[in-house]
Write a protein that binds this DNA or RNA. Sequence first.
RNA 1: AGUCCAAUGGUGUAAUGGUAGCACAACAGAUUUUGGUUCUGUUUGUCUAGGUUCGAAUCCUGGUUGGACUACCA
Length: 552
Amino acid sequence: MEERSLNFLEEIIEKDLAEGKYKSIYTRFPPEPNGYLHIGHAASICLNFGLAIKYQGKCNLRFDDTNPVTEETEYVESIMNDVKWLGFNWDELRYTSDYFEQLYAYAVQLIRQGDAYVDDSTAEQMAATKGDINKPGTDSAWRSRSIDENLALFEEMRAGKYPDGAKVLRAKVDMAHPNLLMRDPIIYRIKHAHHHRTGDAWCIYPMYDFAHGQSDSIEQITHSICTLEFIHHRPLYDWFIQKLGIFPSHQYEFARRNLTYTVMSKRKLLQLVNEKHVAGWDDPRMPTISGLRRRGYTPESIRNFADTIGIAKRDNITDVSLLEFCIRENLNKVANRVMAVLDPVKLVITNYPEGQTEEFDAENNPEDEQGGSRKVPFSREIWIEREDFQEQATKKFFRLAPGLMVRLKYAYIVRCDDFKKDEQGVVTEIYCSYLPESKSGNDTSGLKVKGTIHWVSVPHAQTAEVRLYDRLFRVENPANEDGDFKDYINPDSLQVVANAYIEPALTQAQPGDRFQFLRKGYFCADKDSTPGHLVFNRTVGLKDSWAKEAKK
RNA sequence: AGUCCAAUGGUGUAAUGGUAGCACAACAGAUUUUGGUUCUGUUUGUCUAGGUUCGAAUCCUGGUUGGACUACCA
């Protein structure tokens, strides 16, 4: 087992455990069901569930559903699905809405203690009396209502006597506090809205600040981990726990994870979906977990990525090449190799008898001794990749050009003798002769060739649609650029190859199956596939040192 | 401007007063029936100025830079 240093949360936990502050730890992953989870959430999921596993504690999945206007059951389902797919099991499935009655009682307690009051101010009036960063706020005219009046009014709010916005319940903290969140924050507002779980039972809903900490407390969460932007909420979080005298959960913050060449805010992702810049939340170009899944990413690779980037408290933007490294590393070990030609040109082996065919053994995965092999048919005419031929070989080009030899993977060495072009100058056929004694496995030719290329036999070829995905944005950090982030969308983020040629064995592929298309990259059969029409998504290309060399 | 948070190679992250390390990326080479994989090597870093100390990335002070906060969102 590799010795790894602790991150700052593990240090806190080990200290708490060592000092006997807690017998075991309890964490939670608390998404609001108002969108799909993305790779940043995946890091948070791995963190919260991972800590619980590492320290033999527990971790809940809790939906923070206090705003009925934006939340939907569709999101609840996708979130549960994503967490499970990533490989985690929650101890308890909870909803903040489970606690509405308890939260209401907490609010009443605060009123009785003189720590909360009903305010009739409008939103504008409240903003005007809030003060700002440099200026203290001023007390609301309703701040000194009697406890009995507050109690009665709050009950009426719940009973539906008032329209949206007519009244709010506020905590009585300090209107001059340097932390704006402590200037008598709103804790309940009136919303005559249908809730995805409680239906029309309520017309008042608690605010985040009056729900999150209390929910943590109810669930006996010991370490409540959230992102940095909530750091200013911590004094309020602690204030409520202290005033209510409930289980003291503690909040800890870490920096949210960012990735280059994408956006990570739910609002922006929702825009991409609604404005049809992508085909949906699970479009393979999206950084959503469902998008990555459809793209062909494995749970293991995402967990490994989350582990590798670690956690800290400083702003960050991780290079997407690290994510790509993680999926390549995983797929290299488990994905079967197959041959597919994406941009075909015909190669004729002039000295191979017409009508003759052969079958070669092809190993499924050189990285896996148990991977087995399959048969690949061969004939006089084969499809090869257009980029594997040059009319005049540039320097260091180890593939086909007149006079040059390559090995056809699993088959023979061929020498290029000639080629044919059409009126536009496009190469239409390449003529080669093969060396019968160079047969793969018992090559007695004594020849060494530098290049090996993939191919598909023309009469045996099947077709498939192949979707070549690239990064969604042209710039590293679209959210930081001037103007609309959507101006930086990469127009070539999807290229569709309508008719790629694939070897016959591939027609057995089921949606979700992952392969390495030899020399091209890793691909995943898409859910759009039908028995007669296979669709493959490119997960990620292979590292391509020739592409770099060719640019020089 | 007030409060809070953070500053370590191109990127991410370690070193918890004692040799600045790891991964990705980049570069060079070896191996290779994938220009893949694997292996070897190389380049690049402690924001700044003081202070404490035998010794500071680490502790202290000032500065600089970046971020967060002024929703009846979470």
